[in-house]
Design a binder for these strands. Structure first.
Lengths: 221, 221
DNA sequence: TCTTCATTCTAACAATCATTATATTGTTTT
DNA sequence: AAAACAATATAATGATTGTTAGAATGAAGA
């Protein structure tokens, strides 16, 4: 028979298993990517900049912690977050890290070349401006990710296509770019590019996870 | 010069550091204890059932992740959570673990000898009943923890003192006991003891962290 | 100085990591 | 159907890191 004390130890062990899953930088990066929608191992490996078998090993750890699920489609295996609560936990972890670790805040500040291009409005104000058409919100992630979920009133404008599609963007309005979240560099690149072409471009750090974790709703499809 | 890619890796590394802090069962137990209020290393070691140098080592890891702070008072060094966001993160981690790991739910169910003594009301209903005096809420943690923070309308009735203080408890009303949280065994013991004496006793799994994380307010002092 | 509380150091052991090589599984071709 | 192929998964490796217990060191108070 298992004593209460042993059960208590077991219970903490299980929670620690989730903690362990969140204790590797690469796994956190994979989770951030998965928060954008389901992806195959190959895509995840490419986007995280690691090789396939390493990605597979990390994904196995995440699967054993039940943070992700899989689905087979032909040769490919698609991974996805097993629930929305997982992305909320990731956001919570990141926010707590940001709150407590100065080095993290410093590194994040260094990642933004032009801090003056960061928007300062609250999410609600931004949403209202977008609704009224006073600003144009562009989603610079790949189209597939946009199609799964995106911010209200956002227009899909993948970083890879921006230069060919400059004509679609207004020159008299402020443009706000966003991407996968505060650690993603896509919107940073978009700001550099559109800024060089003379647009009024700013960026926001939220991705869909952060937006949703703040209690705001997304658009799908 | 550090490239953007290196900064990105650094940033994930820092978040993973928080994850690492949360990846050991003993550290999670220490955090749960600290969520009740500040405690010295010796007290923490005793309550977690480990020796001082091990407690000290784990606390060092938590301190390096900036999840806890210290304060010296004479010979003693008191540790405390560095912010309320830390206990919220712990609750979030535990809830996500509970949601995803069946083994955890099973173990938790086994920890409760009499599942029928678990209350089923929502927090709001319980609060209202306590306000009206329809039930008596008892806090079975040590008095020091009660004094730092406790649930509204709760009465301090440490497990160690219950048997001497039976006369203070009503026999015609439902009594609801709570302790440090869902993994704590104090309220379970209180139910066994008061049940044996013929009281209408139930327990709730919330501790002060869970209560507060649910957006409800606590009483202090 | 002696006692108590806490930390640090050390060393053994266990767990985790990235890498390389090999195996599995399902698809396509013949 | 068998063979070749592509996408993942697993196994084995050495390097690194984490855990733990014991002994030694610090720091404060009596």
């Amino acid at each position: 028979m298992t004593t209460k004390q042993e059960l208590k130890a077991l219970v903490y062990e299980k929670v620690a298993q989730i903690g362990k899953a969140l204790s590797s930088p690469k796994r956190l990066e994979l989770l951030d990517l998965l928060a954008q929608g389901e992806k195959s191992v190959e895509i995840l490996a490419n986007e995280a900049g690691i090789d396939k078998q390493l990605a597979s090993a990390h994904l196995k750890a995440l699967r054993e912690a039940r943070l992700v699920n899989t689905r087979r489609e032909g040769k490919y295996i698609f991974y996805r977050l097993s629930a929305q609560s997982v992305s909320r936990l990731c956001v919570n972890l990141r926010e707590t890290a940001e709150e407590h670790l100065v080095e993290l805040r410093d590194a994040l500040a260094q990642m933004t070349s032009q801090p003056e291009t960061l928007i300062s409005e609250t999410r609600e104000v931004l949403l209202e401006k977008a609704r009224k058409g006073e600003i144009v919100v562009i989603d610079v992630r790949p189209t597939t990710e946009f199609n799964i979920a995106h911010l209200p009133y956002a227009r899909s404008m993948p970083l890879t296509e921006i230069e060919q599609r400059l004509a679609e963007l207004p020159r008299d309005k402020e443009i706000v770019a966003y991407c996968r979240g505060p650690f993603c560099l896509l919107s940073e690149d978009a700001v550099a590019m559109l800024g060089a072409h003379g647009f009024h471009i700013k960026r926001m750090l939220d991705g869909v996870s952060e937006w949703e974790a703040a209690g705001l709703s997304l658009e799908h499809g």
